[in-house]
């Protein structure tokens, strides 16, 4: 992807968020009792400045030479985000069951380790993934739940 194009998209998103905050801030009182600078003033000022600096950045980016923006191993990044979201959702849904967090954590880590490992031997990959996950899950239990009294349900 072109770096310039990605920058333009990001600047449009920045401006859109700023406009949204500006519109939401119109619902706030502009002044409060005894104050000359109410709760809406600062967000409005910031929103306006964001739009101005987005335009400045747009103009300056346009002048620069373009380069290629690379997202290496993007499939792994997306996979990791989806798996983390899935793990969190399942924990949120079934987290009240004691021990469920550790079961989900074990499965989460095993999947990550299996997918990340580039070795060709599948049985070796499974063995390493399960072994490391058991060690890590046990470490989380011992360090956080037993020693630090942080509970995950």
């Amino acid at each position: 992807m072109s770096y310039k194009r990605a920058t333009y998209i990001s600047l449009v998103v920045c401006s859109a968020i700023a406009v949204m905050f500006y519109i939401k801030s119109l619902e706030l009182p502009s002044t409060s009792t005894g104050a000359t600078f109410g709760p809406s003033a600062f967000p409005q000022l910031l929103s306006a400045l964001i739009v101005i600096f987005s335009i400045i950045s747009f103009v300056l980016t346009k002048r620069e030479e373009d380069e290629k923006l690379t997202f290496e191993n993007m499939k792994y990044v997306i996979f990791t985000i989806i798996l983390t979201v899935g793990f969190t959702l399942l924990w949120q849904l079934f987290g009240t069951i004691y021990g469920m967090f550790y079961l989900l954590l074990f499965l989460f880590l095993t999947t990550l380790l299996f997918i990340y490992n580039q070795a060709k031997n599948s049985s070796q990959k499974v063995f390493i993934a399960i072994g490391v996950s058991v060690v890590l899950t046990s470490s989380v239990y011992i360090v956080f739940e037993r020693l630090l009294k942080i509970v995950f349900n």
């Binding site: 990791t80 954590l105 880590l109 990550l112 380790l113 990340y116 490391v132 890590l136």
Partner: peptide
């Protein structure tokens, strides 16, 4: 790295 990344993530 394949072992380090899950450790940092968790």
């Amino acid at each position: 790295n394949y072992a380090l990344i899950p450790i940092v993530l968790i």
